[in-house]
Nucleic acid binder design. Structure first.
Lengths: 153, 153
DNA sequence: ACACGGCGCGCAATCGGATTGCAAAGATAT
DNA sequence: ATATCTTTGCAATCCGATTGCGCGCCGTGT
């Protein structure tokens, strides 16, 4: 799919505010409302816009601590990795999970209330999963930026 | 703010689909539309819902490569860190940036088209920033999970 | 137990934006 | 230059968001 400058303006706006009203969106895009909405629908159908989500304030729902865990597995065969991935998909505290090339085998972002909560999570969930050899937890002291917005040129 | 089970159902639904229509949302929450919408507005005003965003498909906008960079700074004083943070805020390719306790000083998630693009980003942006001593790039081979949804009990 | 007060609910009416059909304008290729 | 295909803008329609209001439920105090 080919995106022109108008599409990019639409996407940039919707990445900032996914509920922006169509009239305002049209103004920002430099279009009248109807073609603007039609473009949005096309972008949705084409899968350029994957979904819309509400972003919560972690502190307001008692999940102030976001931390990273680098995971080393006991092996890198498909079975071990698949089992690990399935387990990660099922843990709601694991908000992001990547299988990595290089130093560690996986990188997680885990969201919990506090360190006690994380200790509990690690003890009763992480360590019970087969195939995990080691976990190194990295704690952020500050979140500088957490846009999930992709840069469109 | 105290969240009851209905609020949590609303938040869970909106984290999955931030544009869900109020009538459907009300159905999922087990409420009629008007009190449901009133609750959503309260959650917005209270800052529990921080914002709504459209999530794009990276591949569809030619940004298929998401990678992590661990950064070591030349010093950990406020000035060095502030300068670094300002620089990160200005780089649109840097989608997430955390100042870390422990091994590395910062962790970035960077979004680019491909490795060439990343090399270029590193050469013409990252390495030009004062205070960066070293960067280790970690490449994910697979994205297992990328929910940004917080687990509400 | 009963009366009172406050909070949150659901209904129904209103309001406003989303959606669609259609004709005109623009772009493209021959 | 012209035919064709595409995308726009307008206007009418439709549908959901929003609000006012009365009711019922729950907690409190007597």
């Amino acid at each position: 799919m080919m995106l022109d400058e108008i599409d990019k303006r639409i996407l940039r706006a919707l990445q900032k505010d996914g509920r922006m009203q169509n009239v305002e969106l049209a103004r920002e895009a430099g279009l009248s409302p109807s073609p603007c909405l039609r473009r949005v629908r096309l972008l949705e159908e084409a899968g350029v816009i994957d979904r819309y989500v509400a972003v919560l304030n972690p502190a307001k729902v008692n999940l102030s601590l976001s931390l990273f865990a680098r995971v080393w597995l006991t092996a890198q065969d498909a079975e071990t990795i698949d089992h690990f991935m399935d387990a990660m998909k099922r843990l709601p505290q694991v908000v992001e999970c990547y299988i990595m090339l290089g130093e560690s085998d996986a990188l997680l972002r885990v969201v919990v209330a506090d360190l006690d909560d994380y200790r509990h999570f690690q003890a009763s969930h992480l360590t019970r999963i087969n195939g995990i050899q080691n976990v190194k937890t990295d704690v952020p002291s500050q979140i500088v930026k957490q846009t999930y917005a992709l840069p469109l040129d």
